[in-house]
């Protein structure tokens, strides 16, 4: 009895987590037109999806946005983390705290304030406004990830590198970046996923010129669940899994 209780509990938790995903994947191969009846195996929804030009365009848009937002926020975030870690300056505590404010404040607040700002400066809503918004909410996550890695960084390593003849640039390239690489990758991935599935902020700051996937899906399911969405969900799932495995593989390799 005592042995079975934890196992049952764990099984329930995992069922709760994975059953919806399994259902989505199974029904993406469903031949039936309605989402709740099994009508045999088929790839028709994948076909429909790929023939849906607006959908494919939204997918590319989303990917490109997530890639660029993750990259830009990793660059800015890593430099911010280094500055916060290495230097002592006035207002450092305030800056540090402000990162958490962005992270903790409700997304809707961030969305409204970004929209107000963009309208105020007269920025056309589209890719640029989306990128700026996504970089804003990804940044704190990158900074915190990199700072956590830097807190365990031996301050003598840069000195040892310089002592052995490296200039600052070489030291950064050969010692600092390899050490914080796992954090850079983790931060980038975090940013990428946050950006890829963001709805709230994107709803406010996107324009008709640049449609992205989450918003497209959202507008599709508003008029009823289409099986195409299952197929799309499955593709995204596979994509995320590949990314996850890839990142783990890179991390493992960099450790050796």
């Amino acid at each position: 009895m005592n042995r079975w209780l934890p196992r049952t509990y764990l099984t329930l938790v995992y069922l709760l987590l994975y059953v919806p995903i399994v259902v989505l994947v199974v029904f993406s191969f469903n031949d039936s037109r309605t989402g709740y009846e099994w009508g045999g195996l088929s790839l028709r929804w994948y076909e429909a999806l790929l023939n849906n030009r607006a959908m494919v365009q939204a997918m590319w848009n989303s990917l490109w946005l997530a890639l660029s937002a993750a990259t830009v926020s990793t660059l800015i975030g890593a430099l911010t983390a280094l500055a916060l870690h290495r230097y002592r300056f006035r207002g450092k505590k305030v800056l540090n705290g402000m990162l958490f404010v962005v992270m903790m404040s409700p997304e809707i607040v961030l969305a409204i304030s970004l929209l107000a700002l963009f309208l105020l400066v007269g920025l056309q809503l589209g890719y640029v406004s989306l990128l700026l918004a996504h970089v804003t909410f990804c940044l704190p996550f990158v900074v915190i990830t990199v700072m956590a890695r830097l807190s365990g960084f031996d301050e003598r390593l840069p000195e040892a590198a310089r002592d052995l003849g490296a200039n600052d640039f070489t030291m950064t390239r050969t010692v600092l970046i390899p050490v914080i690489m796992p954090a850079l990758l983790a931060g980038w991935l975090l940013g990428f996923t946050l950006s890829l599935d963001d709805v709230v902020v994107s709803t406010f700051v996107s324009g008709p010129s640049y449609e992205i996937l989450p918003l497209r899906i959202y507008s599709m399911v508003r008029v009823g669940l289409k099986p195409e969405v299952n197929a799309l969900g499955t593709l995204l799932l596979v994509f995320s899994l590949v990314m996850l495995i890839l990142s783990q593989w890179i991390l493992l390799r960099s450790k050796r």
Binding site: R156, L157, D163
Partner: peptide
């Protein structure tokens, strides 16, 4: 980095990567 001097650090500071 230009001195003919090298240093063994207290906690060695070997490059972990």
């Amino acid at each position: 980095n230009k001195r003919p001097v090298n240093m063994v650090f207290q906690h060695l500071a070997l490059f972990p990567t």
